[in-house]
Computed example of a mutant assay.
Amino acid sequence: MKPSTACRLAVATVLTLTGGAVDATVVTTCKAAAGSDGRVDYGFCVSELGKHHDSPSADTWGLAKVAALTGVVNADNAVYDIKALMAKHGTDDGSARPALGRCQELYDSMGFAFAEAHDNINNRDYTGGKEKAGEAAALAHQCDDVFAKAGVPSPVAQYSDYSLQIAVVCSAITNLVQ
């Protein structure tokens, strides 16, 4: 299947699942972001930005901020899940517990980095916003590295993947605002 066909199918699926509630601005902004930055997953962009309550009334500038806020929520969810994993008795082994503790710190920092990206974009400091989104992505990589060095599979890999994707979306949309 061609990538363009896959993108159209992904959008059609999103529109079907949401009852067509995804705003045209989300679709056009994500299309422009994917067109300007090959790292942007168009289907992910439409799906995730389309879920946010501020998206229907947001312009491109607003969607860049929504992307940053979505990163904050993802980081907070990761911290919550890490705390729950650390409370379980099964994480008492010597390598998983310290890795989880370190990733909790990293995800705390990531939440702040995405919040700062939002604030910078809101203040029209687009370079600063993109730098903070990049910092958030680097923190996700650091968490992945912690688990790799510990020799255990990451139980929070889905959060890292999401963080990396939303950081790219945030930066790409911010580039459209400039």
Rank of each mutant, 00 (worst) to 15 (best):
M1T: 04
P3H: 05
P3N: 10
R8F: 03
L9D: 15
A10I: 04
A10M: 12
A10N: 13
T13I: 11
T16D: 15
T16A: 13
T16K: 14
T18N: 11
G19S: 08
V22N: 04
V22L: 06
A24V: 10
A24K: 03
T25V: 05
V26N: 01
V26Q: 00
V26E: 02
V27T: 03
T29C: 04
T29W: 09
C30Q: 07
A32W: 07
A32T: 10
G35I: 06
D37V: 00
G38A: 12
R39G: 12
Y42H: 01
G43H: 05
G43P: 03
C45F: 00
S47G: 10
H52D: 15
A58L: 00
W61Q: 12
G62N: 11
G62D: 03
L63P: 07
L63K: 13
K65Q: 09
A67Y: 00
A68C: 14
A68G: 06
V72C: 01
N74V: 06
N77Q: 15
V79C: 05
I82E: 01
K83Y: 03
L85I: 09
L85M: 09
M86V: 10
T91R: 09
D93A: 02
S95H: 14
A96G: 06
P98M: 07
R102G: 11
C103D: 01
Q104K: 15
Y107I: 01
S109P: 08
G111N: 02
A113Q: 08
A113G: 03
A115G: 02
A117S: 11
A117E: 00
D119N: 09
I121H: 03
I121R: 09
N123S: 14
T127M: 05
A133E: 07
A136K: 09
L139P: 04
L139E: 05
L139H: 11
H141A: 14
D144Q: 15
D145G: 10
A148M: 13
K149V: 15
K149P: 04
A150S: 05
V152T: 04
S154D: 06
S154L: 02
P155V: 13
P155T: 06
Q158R: 15
S160A: 10
D161V: 15
Y162Q: 06
I166K: 01
A167C: 07
A172Y: 11
N175D: 15
N175V: 00
L176M: 05
Q178P: 13
